[in-house]
Each structure stands twice: as C-alpha cells, then as structure tokens.
Design a protein around this nucleic acid. Structure first.
Lengths: 383, 383
DNA sequence: CTGTTAGCGCTTTCAC
DNA sequence: GTGAAAGCGCTAACAG
C-alpha cells in the first residue's frame, strides 16, 4: 500500500539497513550513498512507519501530558511550555500527547494505560491530584511500573507520590518486582511542586495586614491536593496572626470547582452566612471573576466594600476591573522544566523534587476594609 | 522484558491468537476461554503493545488535533470538545494528540509528518490558516495524501482546502495517484467553518445602528483566513451603510496578534491616528481586554467615551468590566462535531462543509457615541 | 562503510 | 471455537 523502506532501498540501490541508518543519522554513512538515499526518499515521498520503528527499536517518541482541564489556561500554559521543550534538534523530535482527564481519577488511569500501550517515552502529570487513598495507591503503583519500564515520569504542580508504604496483601503475582530494571533511565518519578501553601499564606497575611478579619474562602474541590494546600496556608496565616480567627474558619469556607460559576455561587453563599465579611479569597483567578460578578450584582463594590483575591495570576487577571490581587505561579517556567526533566535534559533535583516559588501580586482588588460598612443591601443579585 | 501476548497465552493455556481475539473482542470466543484469558491478563498485568498492534493491524488509535496556541482558551475549548467525542465505548477508544503549532506553517507541516508517521486515524486542524499560496498548496497536497492513505482529515474553524487546481509540473513520481484508494474511508477533507464574515458584519451593523461612524479595528495577523474574513464582514457592513465610510477604513485598521498586548498597542496606535474615534473592534476577546486597558489608561471611559467589542465570546468576556459585547462562536459544539466527523460517527455534510453560525452578544461595552466628546486627554497612558 | 540476518509483538487468514 | 503460521516495516547485531 504505502511506500516502505524496502522501496526506497531498491530505488537507491542500497540495502534497507543503509536507508535506516541514513534516516536515523546515528551511524556513519558515505556522503554519496547518503544523498542518493535522501533523493530516493524525496522522490518516493517516503514517510517512516512510526509503529514499525517503535516496535523494532522498542522505544517511542510520544510524551504524554495529562491535564485536568485543557480549556483552562492554567493547564494550557503548562502544556504549551512542556511541548516547547520537546523539540531540540530536528532529530530527537518528540510528540507531545495532551490528555484531558477532566479531573477524573478513572480517566487519569485510563489515559495512563493508553500511554503505556504506546510505550510512551515519558509522561507528565500536571495540576492537583485527587486525594482518595485508594486512587493514590493505584496511581502510584501504575506510575512506578511505568518508570520501571523506562518511561520517565514527571509530576508538575502536585506533590510527590507516597512511598510504596504499607503492606498490600491479596495481590496477583509479579507485584514484588518494584525494583528498577537495571535500565538506567528508570529513575522514579520526579516532582516539580508549586508552593501553594506559602503563596496562600502570604496572600492571607497581606489581607490581615490591611486590617481584614472576616475573610471568606471559596476554596476548590475537596479532596484535592491544591485545595488542601492553599487552605492550609491560609489557616496558618490566620493562626499566626490570632488563633481566635480560626474559630470562624469553617463557616467562612465553601468548596466548589475551579471555575467561574463556583466562584459566583460560593460568594453568594458566603454572603448569606456572613453578611459582614470584608474579603473573599477565591480558589483561583477564574473563580475570582465569578466572585466579583456576584459581589457586583449584590451591589457591593470591590475593593470598597469587599476585597477579592485570586490565585495563579493567569493572563486576564491583570486586566480584570479592578485588577486582581493574586498569587503568581510561574506556570510556563514550571512546565518547561517539567518538559526538560521528561526528556532527561535537566539534572534531577536533589531528593527528586523541586519546589517552584510563588509570588504575591498586589493589585487593585484588595484594600483596607471600610470600617462600619452597612450589611448587604436588600434586593440581592439581579440574576 | 515486559509481559507479552505469548506469556498471557501460556498462562491461560491457549494460543496467542485466542488472546488477541478476546482482547479485541471482534470475534466469537467461548465464554469459559474468554474469562480464563481475562484472568491471566489481570494476573500478569498485561498491557498491549501499541506499536506492535498498530504495525500488524496497519491502523492506529491516534487522532491528531493541531492548534495554533494551546494556551489560548479558544483552542483549549475546541481541543477539549474534540477529545470529549473520542471515547465512545471502552473499546474503540482513541487517543487525542494535541499539537501546538504556534501558528507556524513549518511546524504545522512538521506535526503533520509526525502524525503521518504514526499512521494517525484522523487529524483535525483548528483555527485560522496561513494564506501564503505556497504553504497552502503544500498543506493541501499533504492532507490529500493523508486522506488518500485512509486518515480522516477535518478542518475546524478554517475554510476548505483549494482544489488541486492549476498544473503543477516538475514533481516526482507517484504524484498522480490522488484518487481514493478504494478504501472507503478515504473521503477528502471535511470542513466545519465558522461564519466569521457574517458575525463581523452583524457586529459592525450594531455599532453603526448605535450611531458610530469612526470605528477603529485592531485586526489579527495579516495573511490569516480568520483575520481576512472578519475584516471583510466589517467592511461589507460599512459599505452597505454608507460607501463613503470605506475611505477611512485603512487608516482605521491596524494588525497584530490575537493577544492582549496587540490589543493594547493597537488601541494606542489607533488613538494616535484618529483621536476622535468612538469605537474599537478587537481581533478577539483577548485583544479586546488589551484595548480596554489602553483606553482606560488613556483616561477614556468604556463605553462612555469609546465603545469596545471583541470576538469569540470566551468565558471571561461576560465577566470583564464592562461586560464585553462580542460575537459568540459555539466553539464547543464545533469541536465536538469535528471530533465526530473525525471518527466517522457523523454523516459528512453536503459538499463536505458545514458552517457554524455565530451570534452577536450585545453587552455593556458598547453604547451610542457621546456627541461632541473632547479629544484624548493629555498625558497619555500611565504605563 | 554496507549488506545479511534475525527478530520486535501482534493480527489475521487458513486449516482443523 | 481454536491453533498454526505468515508476515506488518523497521532496527540492530554481526559479518564482510
């Protein structure tokens, strides 16, 4: 059907092996022969058969990038950065496979299986991980197996995997061969973590310094590492400032997804519970936009009546009105680093983990609380 | 090294062929045998070798999705939609490969080669196409070849490919086999186009109806189909309303990328050229945010002094302050449809092309022009 | 430097 | 219903 190596070899008057060598370029070939082969390739419009070469060479040039939501720029930026590192010299070009898990543990595993089938050269898991112990164990086992088989595993924006840990009886055979395959490339998973805790803590300290005491939190989904870390940072700041503030923390916290409508709904719920709150911390910038919309529709001014802060510092945050105070995560740098790690082009950090610093970006959406503000105007939101 | 089909067969006490049949499920196998095989698979933690099976079956389960900028939600939303259609029943699961071309023609071709190597089941090209004749011809030829080889080709958000057209001598052998390979699946490229022209036209008509006459345009990159179509729609509306308006059209148009800073810079340039303009049309919503920022920093109010409109209706547009008047493109629906077409799960529309309607979304950023407004305040932007 | 020779792991007729 | 055998197209030792 299609043109094969043999066809090219025939036309160039050489053996298939020679054509293969010319194409992969990792072997000495006479200049004359090489150009003759190249010409034949051109003339026949030959295109290497990927599966065949992957089968014979037992390697593939696929790199999987798992994201929780590709429509969210948070992931788009990281994916783009990972991919930008995947094309060094024309030769070792890798193909990034972006897989959208939708945040579902099952799909995460499913895609990993697909990637495993393809004998992917590496996989990069981005964003928060689900904290269900069962899933975590299954995921860790799967990733360890892939790493053992030579696939590089990089975690970007989530904490390291738990160690093999506790005994795990009732398992099929072959479950004890966890040790590396004497392969050399089979280092365990590498992590590029974000300092969500520190960022959240600094953000809350900023609000506290401005004089806020009743700070609402529209947190992310429960059972997610990122959600937990940001909340922990927030509460640590509260505790350090005045342990008494912790008393109201639960009432001042609602959970939702990392999206606009969760911010909108969450803000309304918070306002219902605590009409006199003076600030709202959103799960991320996207949710912050929803919070702002809800406040505005309720008749509250930002930051006059209520201060609002986001997280991530996505591109649109600086352009929101008012510009959003948020915590910047160097997503591009983190993704690029993950990409290099996935290719083995960067030394693995000590302990297999690097933490990316986050930076507080103070902008117009936060200001000192207005003392003695009247509670929520009657009427409620207009939508 | 890894567990193979033969290992599973041995453990289950059957032949490799039987295991293969059980796994692919497209062949009658005795119930008892099937469960025995399945158990062996479980116990051995067997994972199919993708390349090997792709080689033997001469098909792959990869679907390539080419995007111009994965960090842009415009593409993220479409990619996500395409992918969401790629997993019907557990069985025929396809793996979406999102490739970021960065809008570069070379990379577009490079990725297509990579996909061709992998014998991708389908490729979906999203977003605007570069209009360089040479590239267009190369791209069309390449896509036709892939389609001829059985790969489904879908264009989403760009116009159909040109027909083979003019004679193209001086070509290698095998360049005349363009006709389908009697394969059945080898239909030519299918297109899901956006009605950019109509949307732009309606947007401009809206502005015209409000009373605007000096409308600036921060258009997208030159030589891009989307840019040209939106500009054509704009000018058609102008011409229909009053041909005299066309005279200033060129002076009132600047080009940039589809990003925030292009909108920012473009708005300043437009203001410099035409201080008394009363409205600005941005290339897309992201650029519109930049336009708004520039206007605000210049001391102009939106829509009081200048109306602003975007294009695409990305999620954040409704939350901008003021909420952005824009043209909604049903990106998710379009992407989903492209995904179904790529899988052959939806009938090819007549003529191989479907046009997705666009919808004018009138919000708060556009209003009647203020008559007799004073020109740009002195001082200029503060950044 | 180049050709020969074996497979890589799976799918798929064709017999039984 | 199941097994046997013949490749799919390429790479990777070995010879020469």
């Amino acid at each position: 059907m299609a043109v094969t190596l043999a066809d090219v070899a025939a036309r160039a008057g050489v053996s298939a092996a020679t054509v293969s060598r010319v194409l992969s370029g990792n072997y000495p070939v006479a200049g004359a022969t090489r150009s003759r082969v190249l010409r034949a390739v051109e003339e026949l419009e030959y295109v290497v058969n990927g599966p065949a070469s992957a089968l014979a060479a037992a390697t593939s040039d696929l790199v999987g990038v798992l994201v929780n939501d590709i429509a969210d720029p948070f992931f788009g930026i990281m994916a783009s950065a990972v991919q930008s590192e995947l094309e060094p010299g024309k030769a070792g070009r890798k193909l990034a496979v972006v897989c959208n898990t939708g945040g579902s543990p099952e799909r995460e595993l499913t895609y990993l299986t697909l990637l495993q089938r393809q004998r992917a050269a590496a996989v990069v898991l981005t964003g928060s991980a689900v904290e269900d112990p069962e899933h975590t164990a299954a995921l860790a086992a799967r990733l360890r197996r892939m790493a053992g088989a030579g696939t590089r595993v990089v975690l970007c924006g989530r904490p390291p995997l738990p160690e093999p840990g506790g005994p795990d009886g009732a398992d099929g055979p072959g479950s004890t061969d966890g040790s590396g395959d004497a392969d050399g490339t089979a280092a365990g998973p590498v992590t590029v973590a974000f300092d969500n805790r520190g960022g959240a803590r600094r953000l809350t300290e900023h609000l506290l310094a401005l004089g806020h005491r009743r700070i609402g939190c529209v947190a992310g989904p429960v059972e997610r590492t990122t959600t937990r870390h940001r909340l922990e940072g927030h509460r640590a700041a509260l505790a350090a400032h005045d342990p008494a503030l912790l008393a109201d923390a639960d009432r001042l916290t609602v959970h939702g997804a990392y999206d606009r409508s969760s911010g909108y709904d969450g803000a309304l719920e918070l306002l219902r519970r605590t009409p006199d709150l003076t600030a709202v911390l959103a799960a991320n910038d996207t949710a912050a936009l929803g919070v702002c919309a809800a406040l505005r529709e309720t008749g509250l001014r930002i930051p006059g009546d209520v201060s609002v802060a986001g997280f991530d510092d996505l591109p649109f945050s600086a352009d929101a009105a008012p510009a959003l105070t948020t915590v910047r995560i160097p997503l591009h740098e983190a993704g690029a680093r993950a990409g290099r790690l996935a290719l083995g082009r960067e030394a693995v950090p000590p302990g297999g983990m690097a933490t990316v610093r986050t930076e507080l970006m103070v902008r117009a959406s936060t200001a000192p609380p207005r003392t003695g503000r009247a509670p929520v105007p009657s009427g409620g939101p207009t939508r």
